[in-house]
Design a protein around this nucleic acid. Structure first.
Length: 105
DNA sequence: AAGTTGACGACGA
DNA sequence: CTCGTCGCCAACT
């Protein structure tokens, strides 16, 4: 069975270490380096469809470190709570401190 | 098969 | 800073 694009995305997101976050664009960039032509929009859309608890999608934010508006998880509030429980700090109500927590492979 | 969707990114205003 | 527009592409309907 061929690995679909979204399986590839999940596989990468699962590798995000605890206490770190990454961005949609960064994920797209890494996967493009493998072989998939993907963009940030597709990554976000794939995660939206995700229902797999093994994928720590709360560690994925947009390029500014901002959390997903209100459509993700149980709301941005819940996502923020999870990230804080992993030691991630926020510069704002909706923004992760990317400077200290951005995941770089 | 073709059109729509989408948790984004970059840029302009 | 926010908002609108365009671009990007796979999966969905």
């Amino acid at each position: 069975m061929q690995i679909s694009t979204y399986q590839t995305v999940y596989n990468l997101v699962k590798k995000i270490p605890k206490g770190k976050v990454t961005t949609y664009g960064l994920i797209a960039e890494k996967l493009r380096f493998v072989n998939k032509n993907i963009n940030a929009h597709v990554v976000g859309w794939i995660l939206h469809k995700n229902n797999n608890p093994l994928v720590p999608c709360h560690r994925v934010v947009d390029r500014n470190g901002r959390l997903a508006p209100n459509f993700a998880f149980d709301g941005a509030r819940e996502q923020k709570r999870r990230l804080e429980s992993e030691g991630i700090k926020f510069t704002d109500e909706m923004h992760v401190d990317l400077k200290n927590h951005l995941w770089i492979i």
